[in-house]
């Protein structure tokens, strides 16, 4: 290679232009080759993205303005699906149920998992055993946990009602009772709280000991230390759990399909099961697509609200605390 000679020539200022061009040409050839390989390497994702995500998203958007039933050609109906949707009592009911489930189960899961993580952070004998036990429910596939909860929630013989009867409380027929059925799914969500817990535990264990020590010197109680040191330091993880929990809850499907099918009288039906039955039971593909887009917007709005609020309550090490 004569790049060194080239640069010398350039430095001397003698006829620099053609030499420089040649250097660029050499580089650009290698860069071109690299670029070609870049596209080859990312091709699987790019093709998948266009074929399975972008294309279908556009198609779904277009479909939401049609009345397609899968068998005859789709008709363009403008905003009709969306108008029908906003006048559909069942849709409002499933939205209400989904919000009810999300707004109770997500914060409750976070509070409980925080408490559990705090207990598991203690340095006492046998704590590893408890960590494993607390995590086990997370490993159970939703289909299997739904099968178990069908019996946990059974009216007379179920575990929960037997427990309540100790206190003389006559528990409801959870899965059959329109007012209580939503709580069945909250129970199920809480049983699987261990996923949040492990992340919070790791965060709690990562809080620098010096912070606690200096607080102790100031005579801070355990309670104060937890709320004024631990919680602020781990708030980014709480934030992460909140976002993921929210997105997951808004998309609840399997447990509802298996345990109640949305019943009785839609009192446990939620957005995704309703979307599913419209699409694959009634073949209202256009209508189902419009539900999907409304769900997408709901998820975006919820996420955005949490992101916006995070500047108030999420603490990052890099910022200087006032």
């Amino acid at each position: 290679m004569n790049t060194t000679t080239n640069s010398v020539v350039n430095n001397n200022g003698e006829n620099p232009v053609p030499e420089k061009n040649r250097a660029i040409k050499v580089i650009s050839k290698a860069a071109k080759k690299e670029q070609r390989w870049f596209y080859i390497f990312i091709a699987p994702w790019l093709i998948g993205f266009i074929g399975f995500t972008l294309g279908p998203m556009i198609a779904s958007f277009v479909l939401s303005f049609t009345d397609w039933d899968l068998f005859t050609a789709p008709n363009f109906v403008g905003l009709e699906n969306y108008i029908t949707l906003f006048q559909d009592d069942v849709f409002w009911k499933v939205v209400y149920n989904t919000f009810f489930f999300t707004i109770i189960s997500v914060p409750l899961s976070i509070i409980l998992s925080l408490g559990m993580a705090y207990l598991l952070a203690q340095k006492i004998r046998g704590i590893k055993f408890f960590r494993t036990v607390f995590y086990l429910p997370v490993l159970v596939p939703v289909v299997a946990s739904s099968m178990i909860f069908k019996w946990i929630l059974a009216p007379d013989t179920g575990v929960i009602n037997r427990f309540l009867s100790i206190f003389g409380v006559d528990g409801p027929a959870w899965l059959l009772d329109p007012t209580w059925v939503k709580f069945s799914f909250i129970f199920l969500a809480i049983w699987g709280v261990g996923g949040n817990m492990v992340l919070l535990l790791a965060a709690i264990q990562g809080v620098p000991e010096e912070l606690y020590e200096s607080a102790e010197m100031d005579g801070a109680s355990k309670f104060r230390k937890f709320f004024h040191i631990t919680i602020p330091i781990i708030s980014p993880v709480i934030f992460f759990n909140l976002v993921m929990g929210l997105i997951g809850s808004l998309q609840a499907f399997t447990q509802i399909y298996i345990l109640t099918g949305g019943g009785p009288n839609n009192s446990s039906n939620m957005i995704v099961p309703y979307l599913f039955s419209n699409a694959f039971e009634y073949y209202k593909m256009g209508y189902a697509s419009s539900i999907a887009w409304v769900l997408f917007i709901i998820i975006m709005v919820f996420t955005l609200i949490i992101f916006k609020s995070s500047s108030i309550w999420v603490y990052y090490e890099s910022e200087v605390k006032k």
Binding site: F52, T53, G55, P56, M57, A59, S60, L63, I247, Q251, V272, L275, A279, M285, A288, S289, A292, W293, L295, F296, I299
Partner: peptide, 9 residues
Amino acid sequence: IPGQITMIP
């Protein structure tokens, strides 16, 4: 992006 958006297409 939630999977339900792309499910039908």
